[in-house]
Amino acid sequence: MPDYSLELANGAPEQRIVGLDEVGRGPLAGPVIAASLVFLTPPEPPLAAMIDDSKRLSAKRRDAAFAALMAHPAVRIGLGAASVPEIERINIGKACHLAMQRALAHLGFMPDMALVDGNRLPALGCPALAVVGGDRKSLSIAGASIIAKVIRDRLMTRLSERHTTYGWEKNAGYGTALHMAGLKQTGVTPHHRREFAPIRALLACAAQPVGAI
């Protein structure tokens, strides 16, 4: 379970320590969403107990943690995104960093330090520490992971109402069997990442002349 020790070791709560995480690196469709999160005061045990790596929480527990974080008076949150055209233009790694930069910019103030999930750091304008598996170590990163995942999942559910054959309300754009079946049935939408190998292969196959080997 994540805790608040990394934040305390870096001067929290006197220093404003932000956690940064992104969601949506691997899907075949949809944007990357990132969140930044700061606890202005150490999180109380009931709130801390709700927070974990978003991937380890059930949807019900994740939604409850999301609501608690969004409503908490001592929590500050910023959101950022990188669109499908941006992912295709600059690549997924740079798009994840761009989304994180935007999430930090939307926080409303520059923190004293950033704890960033992963092993690479975006240019943030403040001291930063890359934390591998950070969403299982830091409450600030884990909280950010919950915010980003819930926002992205809800976005993909809304998109699924207009694009009904891909199952995005269930798979959030990942390449599940249902999603791949929808691609074969309906084809590629503007929300698909055309530079990702499965989509690129599908488009190449569709462009192949009839009778070509």
Rank of each mutant, 00 (worst) to 15 (best):
Y4N: 13
Y4K: 02
S5Y: 02
E7G: 03
N10L: 13
N10A: 14
A12T: 10
P13L: 08
R16C: 03
E22G: 00
L28N: 13
I33Y: 11
S36N: 13
L37S: 05
F39C: 01
L40Y: 07
P43K: 00
P46M: 11
P46H: 00
A49N: 12
I51C: 13
D52R: 07
D53I: 04
R61V: 01
A65H: 01
L69K: 03
L69R: 00
H72P: 01
A74M: 07
A74P: 05
V75A: 05
R76Y: 03
I77V: 09
G78F: 00
L79F: 10
G80D: 08
A82E: 06
E86V: 13
I87R: 02
E88Y: 02
E88S: 06
G93Y: 10
G93N: 14
K94G: 05
C96V: 06
H97Q: 12
L107C: 09
L107S: 06
G108Q: 00
G108E: 01
P111D: 02
P111M: 00
P111A: 09
V116H: 00
G118W: 11
R120G: 07
L121V: 14
P122H: 05
P122W: 03
A123T: 15
A123Y: 01
C126L: 06
P127G: 04
V132R: 14
K137F: 06
S138M: 10
A142C: 10
A144Q: 01
S145D: 04
S145T: 01
I146N: 04
K149Y: 06
I151M: 08
D153W: 08
D153Y: 08
L155Y: 09
L159D: 08
S160D: 14
H163W: 15
G167S: 05
G167L: 01
W168S: 14
N171M: 14
N171F: 11
N171L: 12
Y174F: 15
Y174L: 08
T176M: 00
L178V: 15
H179G: 04
M180N: 13
A181L: 09
K184Y: 10
K184S: 15
Q185W: 00
Q185F: 08
T186H: 14
T186I: 12
T186K: 14
G187D: 08
T189I: 09
T189S: 13
P190C: 05
H191E: 15
H191L: 13
R193D: 00
E195K: 14
I199S: 09
I199P: 13
A201W: 03
L202G: 14
A204K: 14
A204R: 14
A207V: 03
A207C: 05
P209D: 05
V210K: 12
G211Q: 12
G211D: 09
G211P: 10
A212N: 09
